[in-house]
Design a protein around this nucleic acid. Sequence first.
RNA 1: GAGGGCGUAGCGAAGCUGGUUAUCGCGACGGCCUGUCACGCCGUAGAUCGCGGGUUCGAGUCCCGUCGCUCUCGCCA
Length: 596
Amino acid sequence: MEYKQRTVTCGALRKSDDGQRVVLNGWVHRNRNHGGIHFINLRDRYGITQVVVGEHAPDDVVAVAGELHLEYCVSVEGIVHARPASMVNAEMGTGEIEVEALSLQILSRCEPLPFMIDENETDAKEDTRLRYRYLDLRSGAMQKRIKLRHDFVRAIREYLSSRDFYEIETPTLIKSTPEGARDFLVPSRIYPGKFYALPQSPQLFKQILMVSGFDKYFQIARCYRDEDARGDRQLEFTQLDMEMSFVNRDDILLVMEGLFNHVFKQVMDYQLPAHFTRLTWHEAMNTYGVDKPDLRYGLPIVAVDDLAKASSFGTFLQVLSDGGTVKALKAPASEAPAYSRKYISELEDAAKIYGAKGLAWIKVGSNGAIEGGVSKFFVGQEQALIQRMEAKEGDMIVFVADQWKKTCNSLGAVRIKLARDLGLVTKGTFEFCWIVDFPLFEYNEDAKHWEAAHHMFSMPQVQYLDTLESDPGSVKGDLYDLVLNGYEVASGSIRIHDVELQKRIFRICNFTDEEAESRFGFLLNAFRYGPPPHGGIAPGIDRMVMIMAEQTSIKEVIAFPKNTAAISPMDDSPSSVDEQQLDDLHLIIKQLKKTE
RNA sequence: GAGGGCGUAGCGAAGCUGGUUAUCGCGACGGCCUGUCACGCCGUAGAUCGCGGGUUCGAGUCCCGUCGCUCUCGCCA
């Protein structure tokens, strides 16, 4: 098709371009027909320019203008005119000018839209947006977020490249290894009955790159985990995968602090503190009830075992004698929501999600009195309780009594709900923190053996090396998570680089030497050839961009995401395949639950 | 696997305790309009109220089942 190619974009023209002859290519964003005069807002990635088809326009231009509908793709040639002061649109970047059309060509037509393309957020429902993702991505909001993501990744590449990191690709068809999440499998055509797996992360390959001497590595790596989706989780996602040799934990934390200082400044002009708060896993759990605390607000959880023990509340006493714990959280006084019976029950529901059996409460009245709920069991301890909680009139104190982890998690959920409902979350701020000293193992009650809490390649802290086997539960690892505004945005560790130590870890996690050798033999072999001490980390790109864009779903920052049912409504994947394809792959479908 | 929310025209929504012809905005279509910028004005079409069953004289509304979407728990080193 012959057409006039653009000489400028729709966001470029200014008053200083007055009188220029230009060509614009773009989409009809709005078309206002006043009978004798048309105003066409022409849109592309860069902005919107008003095109005028007026009284002096050639007849053919007027005719074409009359045919235009929303989202027609057109080419316009015209003259730039500065608008008279009274007609300037201060809302638009190009609001001081307009382009008088001399020629107008329709490049392609557009059917009636399923939803309007908005300069900001579209009001269509997510399902509809995903089905017509190509239209949804035209919205100003999506364009902005996709750009943000580009800027973010670009700033990362620039920073790391300037600091001697190599970007190295690792395979996406790899061996299935029995750790972590469920693997996506790819059947081999050449080897009947054998499968590749898509990587859950480039973990083993980046460690092997360290053995190869590439002592500073990074990759913008696609990762795959066949697990149920969430707002902040897709089965396919992108990590900034990193690994370094001859480093200790603090070296890695410092690199990351430098990286994100640079990136936030570069991309959002946001100044982060030079160093991020560090909390041990235990501190985080005890104080915030999660291993990914949102530090944009306070509301610390407080231990009250001693006060509970001195109380006369049977439930508390029972939990304590069963080895549990009692913790409390102060809900600060506020007008809305008042701590009504209904609201307290909402808080209780939040606590119960994580297994708490109930939520005890006490209101603080005037003159140091405590009222309602379980207050009658704390006679004589009013002042001690108020002092401990730093409570004042109008505050409410809520309690959970249970096993340690349930207690922490439940109050953690109440803390988050309170902060949201009371409006304690400061918009537009970014609070990073490090969580360190994670336990290396946790006990799998179903499988009846210990498992790696993160993965099996993380280094135990040296003081636990003699007690790995005798007391796995208390072993702390050289592990660290980076947390941003209540989301885990990165996770990493110093790795094991010693074959014997690595084998001990496998054994504790119930792998025989034979199994370990068959699954991870290539790593163990590499470690027989002078592996350097090394460690790394992997920030989630989608999550970080989501938080920077102040969204609550990573779908908002992924061009083509899948829905919660793991379906892509646009291309309708997954789908069935031809019999011939199955034959090639030596596959027989066991049973179809429903006919397709 | 489990729980909460939602499902009404192409899109977004209203429809209270069951009661005539299911309402509104955007969009579509036709017409009018020479300075709008979410243009305005007049008119038209468009809905088996997700699907199936039940209660009832009568169901968008109540009950049961089912499907889809969404958030969450489990799961996700």
